[in-house]
Amino acid sequence: MKKYIKLWKQLLSEFSGKEVLSAFYGALIYTSLIAILVLATISQIVSVYLYYLTLWIVLIIIVMALLTYIFHYFWFKALIIKKPETKTDIKTLFLINQIIIDTVYLIVGLLFIFVFVPMLMV
């Protein structure tokens, strides 16, 4: 955790808040374009093959993890294009970010499998 905070501080000392946010929004918009298509496709597959619901939830967790990876990849690219000479280990920083986000997806997915789906399918 200390390393994570240290990396964030280092990143913000090299880049201005505006630059980090601009890269963030760019990554968000490009990832959203992919996510809308992918998630709409999956939701329609789920609606037709609902009897494999547990399998789809596992797939959705994996897809969400991939989208998180794509988002961080775009964010990383945008930052690198802005300052190619940066010394911050952005890859490690974003890897920790992804692990945190993916853990949340995993917990929510498991909650859906074991709690919400049995509750909703009444």
Binding site: S22, A23, Y25, G26, A27, I29, Y30, F74, K77, A78, I81, K82
Partner: peptide, 9 residues
């Protein structure tokens, strides 16, 4: 944002 657009256009 603009950098990404230039790169991926």
């Amino acid at each position: 944002m603009n950098e990404l657009t230039k790169k991926y256009w």
